[in-house]
């Protein structure tokens, strides 16, 4: 049951990321080069809407990526302790989340 819930969460974050990452890529990578200029970056950093957008993107992206990595690791190394792997991945995920959250929050 736990695995099913984790998988359903993987699907939900995947669907949400389709829209969040899609928006981010269209604006930041397909848009004009002005978007990546310092003034534009600083403007977005000061906007609370963008802050919420990036935090949700970060949270969903980290869960989706780390759960996907967990699936691949367990498939490649089936004898690995699931509890140890889960613990390690949660620690890594929290560390990345803390670092990545600090950047937009401190720039806000």
């Amino acid at each position: 049951m736990r695995e099913t819930k984790l998988k359903i969460l993987q699907y939900i974050t995947g669907i949400a990321l389709f829209f969040f990452v899609g928006t981010h890529l269209i604006i930041s990578h397909l848009g004009s080069e002005e978007v990546t200029e310092w003034t534009s970056v600083a403007d977005r950093a000061a906007n609370s809407g963008w802050l919420v957008f990036y935090i949700i993107l970060l949270l969903f992206g980290l869960y989706h990526g780390i759960h996907g990595l967990r699936t691949i690791i367990l498939e490649a190394l089936p004898r690995l302790s699931v509890k140890s792997l889960d613990f390690t991945l949660v620690i890594i995920g929290l560390a990345i989340f803390g670092y990545a959250l600090y950047i937009p929050v401190s720039a806000f």
Binding site: G61, G65, G68, I96, A100, I103, S106
Partner: peptide
């Protein structure tokens, strides 16, 4: 994509 996101997050640190 996971590798790219990791590098992207490191790169974002330059904003500070």
């Amino acid at each position: 994509l996971l590798l790219y996101i990791t590098l992207h997050l490191v790169m974002n640190g330059f904003r500070l």
